[in-house]
């Protein structure tokens, strides 16, 4: 069954999942939030409507900005597409392009997309977007080492940085799954997801300039470019959650069958995993107060400490000497 065509088909399914399921996840999050706040809230398909409307609108670019401002969302978007080729989203086995990047490479790709968007925000040359860029840069400076630390811990467990190997090891070995290292890695990664996807207690999404970080960066975009950068944001959120779930938290229930049906089965299970994660995230978002901007550094330093501790746990527990 593992003929090239099937693999390519699965590849397409994977990219399609990332591309077309990610706005849905964002929509479900918004709807769920509204429901907890006893409001009716927008439809779960609202992000699709927004995207299609924006894609039909014309683009207005700040007068002073260079052409980089226009290219940047596309570059980020492509970077996320590349990542979606190489992480285990619908298969527990590597796809043809899996050799492109490992986990660390993926992390650097995320970082690359982030840097591009920061530079573009500076390029917009307005107050709000520059403020967003500086905030984003100062938090990323702490978030990125955490991510790298997590992947070092993973590499120490499996001896490689291949996400598929990690997935298989965690799915098969209960002793690694329950080890302190893995649990700490999960905790650190979860905190990082809250930071990267702009969730409370780190950031309240919206246009309140006191706390806005990511929304400030894209404030000068409009029309098609805004659609692309929003879509990129949805994909980033989706990818992070999918990696978190499929590699670390719930490495099971992915069909090892090299077939289209198997891949579709995995998409189905992934959807339910995501739903569970979303519920947790929304509950956190609705129950926590937003941290003051300077306290976000504390939050990040805690997640960094957890990641560092996860490596130490390997030594302290005597698993590595």
């Amino acid at each position: 069954m593992s003929d090239p065509i099937t693999l390519q088909l699965i590849n397409i399914i994977q990219i399609g999942t990332v591309l077309f399921l990610s706005p849905l996840i964002a929509g479900i999050i918004n709807r769920l939030k509204s429901m907890i706040e006893s409001k009716h809230g927008p439809s779960i398909f609202q992000p699709y409507y927004d995207l299609s409307k924006l894609l039909r609108k014309e683009v207005v670019v700040p007068e002073k900005s260079s052409s980089f401002f226009v290219i940047a969302p596309l570059v980020s978007f492509v970077a996320y597409l590349v990542i979606s080729l190489v992480v285990p989203i619908v298969t527990p086995y590597p796809l043809p392009y899996g050799i492109l990047l490992d986990l660390l490479g993926g992390a650097l790709m995320f970082g690359f997309a982030g840097v591009i968007s920061i530079i573009a925000a500076i390029d917009a040359r307005t107050n709000y977007s520059t403020m967003g860029a500086s905030r984003s840069a100062s938090f990323t400076a702490l978030a990125e080492p955490t991510l790298i630390m997590i992947f070092i811990a993973v590499a120490m467990i499996t001896g490689t940085n291949n996400p598929y190997t990690t997935n298989n090891l965690l799915a098969s070995s209960a002793s690694w799954y329950l080890s302190a290292t893995h649990i700490l890695v999960m905790a650190a990664f979860f905190m990082l997801i809250l930071v990267e996807t702009g969730r409370l207690p780190v950031e309240s999404s919206g246009l309140v300039e006191f706390g806005m970080i990511d929304d400030a960066k894209v404030i000068e975009y409009s029309g098609k470019l805004l659609a692309i950068s929003r879509w990129g944001g949805y994909m980033k959120q989706f990818l992070l959650m999918a990696v978190f779930l499929n590699v670390f938290v719930i490495p099971w229930w992915m069909s090892g069958d090299v077939s289209v049906t198997g891949a579709l089965y995995s998409v189905g299970t992934l959807f339910f995993k995501l739903l569970a994660l979303i519920v947790i995230i929304v509950i956190i978002e609705e129950t926590f107060a937003k941290l003051r901007l300077f306290k976000i550094l504390d939050f990040l330093s805690i997640s960094f400490s957890l990641a560092l501790l996860s490596i130490l746990a390997l030594f302290l527990g005597g698993k590595v000497t």
Binding site: A174, L178, A180, I183, L184, I302, L306, L316, G317
Partner: peptide, 24 residues
């Protein structure tokens, strides 16, 4: 069941609680 893992995890949790106190 999972004796080693539980002991290891509890040990690390103890360390975590200690770090939490450092940060309070």
């Amino acid at each position: 069941p999972f004796y080693e893992e539980i002991v290891g995890f509890l040990g690390i949790s103890v360390l975590l609680s200690s770090l939490y106190m450092q940060g309070q």
